[in-house]
């Protein structure tokens, strides 16, 4: 990576934006509070680019947090990324937001496994586990929606650390599992910074056939869709519309 890239992550309560020449983030900013994301996201982009005297057209591409996470939050980051990329003709890459969160902790832990969790409500978390190596990232548990107990059960190893949050009882379960309390996301480097750090490592991102029509990994179907599928015992039909 020789050119400048913009990183955007809005999968959690923290919206973060960073810019730089990967793997280095040379400028970054974030806000906390999901209700502020839509209002602040372009201002954050403007702030981090302005500090580097860049405009969107000067960028080589945008790397955006792929989720899973807050449905609305993800769409805010993705809408911003699509709009910027569409107008300025930029490449879009995606990296799981859980990987970005875990990578923040790995800076001090080396190659030890790190589990990342975002609260998915209903007693579940969006969870994944990674081991970070200088030349690659091993996905020990791919991003999934599951209860903390299920996460413990499917993980092939005990993590050195858990980052993120969950519902009631989550902290105690994770402390029992990892031997230390989970590290809250606001104690870690912003996810957008870590997206830039991860960009370029083999196998960390999802290849988008057509970024314009791509969607984030929501982690769950819409509730109405899930109910429909449960009632009908088959996948929901395609949701394309009629153009006029």
């Amino acid at each position: 990576m020789v050119g400048f890239w913009l990183g955007i992550d809005t999968a959690t309560d923290i919206a973060s934006v960073a810019a730089g020449r990967p793997p280095v983030a040379e400028s970054g900013a974030h806000v906390q509070g999901a209700r502020r994301h839509a209002a602040e996201i372009i201002r954050l982009v403007d702030f981090v680019l302005d500090r580097l005297s860049l405009r969107p057209r000067d960028l080589e591409g945008i790397v955006v947090g792929d989720g899973p996470g807050s449905f609305t939050g993800l769409r805010i980051g993705w809408s911003a990324a699509k709009g910027l990329a569409h107008e300025a003709g930029l490449d879009i890459r995606t990296i799981p937001s859980l990987m970005a969160a875990a990578a923040g902790a790995s800076l001090r832990l080396g190659t030890d496994p790190v589990a990342a969790c975002f609260d998915a409500l209903r007693g579940q978390v969006y969870g994944a586990m990674y081991a970070f190596h200088p030349d690659r990232v091993d996905s020990l548990v791919e991003p999934a929606v599951l209860t903390p107990a299920e996460f413990v059960r499917v993980a092939p190893v005990r993590p050195r650390l858990v980052v993120g949050g969950g519902g009631p009882g989550f902290a105690d379960q994770m402390t029992d599992w990892a031997g230390a309390p989970p590290v809250p996301l606001d104690s870690l480097p912003p996810a957008a910074t870590m997206l830039l750090a991860l960009l370029g490592r083999p196998g960390v991102g999802r290849t988008l056939d057509d970024p314009a029509i791509a969607e984030p990994v929501y982690g769950r179907p819409a509730e109405a869709q899930a109910q429909w599928e449960a009632r009908h015992g088959r996948p929901f039909p395609d949701s394309s519309g009629r153009a006029g």
């Binding site: 809408s79 911003a80 709009g83 569409h86």
Partner: peptide, 8 residues
Amino acid sequence: VYAKALAY
């Protein structure tokens, strides 16, 4: 958000 990004 998309419109803001286009305009910006």
